[in-house]
Design a protein around this nucleic acid. Sequence first.
DNA 1: TACATGATGCCCT
DNA 2: GGGCATCATGTAG
Length: 219
Amino acid sequence: MAKTQTSSFSKAKPLPREFYDRDPRKVGRELLGKLLIRKAARGKLLVGRIVEVEAYLGKLDPASHSFKGPTARNEIMFGPPGFAYVYFIYGNHYCLNVSCQPPGIAGAVLFRAVQPLEGMEDMAIARHIKIARERDLRLLTSGPGRMAEAFGITRQRDNGKDFTSEKSDLIIAEPPESDYRLPRILATKRIGITKAADRRLRYVLAGNEFVSGPRKMSQ
DNA sequence: TACATGATGCCCT
DNA sequence: GGGCATCATGTAG
């Protein structure tokens, strides 16, 4: 592990708006392997490789928050693609999504887990946990609520943020070239929903340690 | 104004 | 594997 003075991720450029201007199923699959980057205070970075996402298909999808049409909470999903939709759930947790498809058409991809690559110390502080061994790293970002907490995501701070702006402190970028080869992608049922529960709209990187919940095809 | 619900995680068996 | 904390939001009244 070579320690570098400046992060190899500091020059990462956000993916363009067009990337998100498509069906959430396509966006979700293609987000796997990409980097979620939070530019924190004093030039510090939090970086994770996206390993698990779920697609939500707006008015075509009873499980989507936007199924019944726009409200104050979900309006971001009805706006332009590439913006953060953050919601609070179960009285405890925030979950991070990115809006997809053109204005007027709701759709989103939920980020469920990333593999931490940089800023693990700060993530551990944000999560209020200690990392004693390698396998504890899972506790940082495996699961949507954990991941959001590790990255300091809140609705107040991040809802409506533009993932595609160079000025944004929350972006998604292509990993540096040659650094990574994409594994196989598995499509499984989504987690924790009751409506449209049989649709395989959860996408995970096969065999990745940091995927939350089932890592194989369920039935 | 009241109430039911939930795209979760943690702790206890 | 199961129970539960805890509150923003939507919907009904």
